[in-house]
């Protein structure tokens, strides 16, 4: 065997999950070529190192979370069949909501036009939208809750401690559970991202926007311009 053939041979052996140290051709060549002997040792070190890699432990609630997701039909949407009357009923509900929305919009419009943005933050929070944010299934059931950004009240309430917060709107662990109701989602997230880090800790294994809130409290959003965001530590 020539030196340039050694690596090809090693790949062949590894592809077949065979030992490179037991191959007569490799052993014979490595015995007479110091450089290739080092190469063989490097491959062997790589294999030994991979076997020493570890996978983190699953959380103790894993099984329970799977069974809960399984029991909850909304966790993974299933295909549904629609009958004509259910479609008609949906249209009726949608039409009613549209009319109600138009009435509400007309009722609100004069106040918005005349008000000061900074003087009346609760009006601005309507721009931040209302959304429902459900903490994902890996959180123990007793901790599962919904975080509601209530239009008009201007506050996100986090009722407990050690809540996982994923602050990226494209995080699929929560994306399916976020329902933007009005506009613009990005503003709401930006406010949250600025508000949370003061009292959160990044998970050690990633640099994602994921954190754990370490104390109960509230996030108050003063206005939509994001100029005064605070995270009071009040319980």
């Amino acid at each position: 065997m020539r030196c340039e053939e050694l690596e090809v041979r090693i790949h062949e052996l590894l592809d077949q999950r065979k030992s490179i140290r037991d191959d007569p051709e490799v052993v014979a060549h490595a015995a007479v070529c110091a450089e290739c002997d080092k190469r063989v040792a490097s491959f062997q070190a790589m294999l030994d190192g991979v076997q020493a890699l570890s996978v983190p432990e699953l959380s103790p609630q894993f099984d329970r979370a799977v069974l809960r997701r399984l029991a909850n039909p909304t966790a993974v949407p299933r295909r549904r069949t629609y009958s004509w009357y259910s479609v008609a009923a949906s249209f009726a509900v949608a039409a009613s909501l549209l009319v109600a929305g138009l009435v509400w919009w007309h009722a609100q419009r004069p106040q918005q036009d005349g008000g000061s943005q900074l003087a009346n933050p609760s009006k601005q929070s309507a721009d931040l939208a209302a959304f429902v944010w459900t903490i994902p299934g890996r959180v123990p059931s007793e901790r599962i809750h919904e975080v509601c950004w209530t239009t008009g009240r201007n506050v996100v309430t986090l009722p407990g401690k050690f809540r996982r917060v994923a602050m990226s709107p494209d995080d699929t662990s929560i994306a399916g559970r976020i329902r933007p109701v009005t506009r613009p989602m990005g503003v709401a997230w930006a406010v949250l991202k600025r508000a949370l880090p003061a009292n959160t800790e990044k998970t050690p294994d990633s640099n994602h926007d994921t954190g754990w809130i370490h104390s109960p409290g509230r996030i108050a959003v003063a206005n939509a311009s994001e100029s005064s965001v605070s995270y009071p530590r009040s319980a």
């Binding site: 997701r69 299934g137 890996r138 294994d205």
Partner: peptide, 11 residues
């Protein structure tokens, strides 16, 4: 990523 992996494993 451990937490993402746990989520996807559950799913």
């Amino acid at each position: 990523h451990r937490e993402d992996a746990e989520d996807m494993a559950q799913e």
